[in-house]
Design a binder for these strands. Structure first.
Lengths: 128, 128
DNA sequence: CTAAAACCTAGAGTGCGCTCGAAGTCAAAT
DNA sequence: ATTTGACTTCGAGCGCACTCTAGGTTTTAG
């Protein structure tokens, strides 16, 4: 960190803030998942703004709900296009929400079956 | 299906019953995920018993809660070993249960963030 | 000024879970 | 008996999301 405290975070600081690795941050950028180009400090090194961090955190939320990289790219394209693509963005997120709910449901159902077996084992029942 | 109605299902029937493909059924077997060898009808063709189907369905539950193939293989090894490995099996399932609960929690948290953004879009707020 | 640490790009490699293709065998219907 | 379609094995191929390597440049601490 320089004495003149540059505006923005280095990539390793960004990595720490977002719980991603520097590799993954560069990868996401290469894949076109950043809303705009990340600033470069007086040279070639990336400087992440708070807005960048906020976005990456949201991006991570999309990933942790299993939105594919390609779909995130579509969303980003809409944001970049600007001039009222808000309905499309809303539709995209709403559709994603539905698939997440469906997945949650399936996981809960499966978990119930697993719990059932756990209960059987706990009671010493013969199960496999 | 023969006239003498063979005992057990063909692989394609098993696929239908379990919502897997025949490819996946063979793959799982190759990977050592079946509790024992699947019967072969008067020749080389697989015949799935009801017990086989029951197991594959449970196996699918483990998979849909993201248990890795390798861990399922460990579980299967315990079942095969028999002579009271029930405590280990219980431990394995219980540990898995914890990771599923943790994942569910993370997904729910992420979904809340997504819902928040959906709400913002719905209200016509400026968001990305 | 110099050395060490952090950064850069481009491209290759990895791990997982399937998924498919080729080449051949078997079974059910005509 | 023959054709059609389902089955077999073995191994290769694929899609996804990272993850790492190599070789070079930049920054920062001393």
């Amino acid at each position: 960190m320089s004495l003149l405290e540059a505006a923005g975070l280095s990539i390793s600081e960004a990595a720490e803030r977002t719980s991603l690795t520097v590799h993954t941050l560069r990868y996401y950028e290469r894949e076109g998942l950043m809303l705009g180009p990340v600033d470069r400090s007086s040279s070639t090194h990336r400087r992440y703004s708070e807005a960048d961090i906020t976005w990456v955190v949201f991006l991570s939320r999309l990933r942790s709900t299993a939105m594919p990289i390609a779909r995130i790219r579509e969303y980003v394209a809409l944001v970049r296009r600007g001039d009222d693509t808000t309905q499309e963005r809303l539709a995209l997120l709403t559709a994603h929400r539905q698939t997440v709910l469906a997945t949650l449901d399936e996981v809960r159902t499966s978990l119930a079956a697993i719990d059932y077996k756990i209960a059987a084992y706990s009671k010493g029942n013969p199960v496999s």
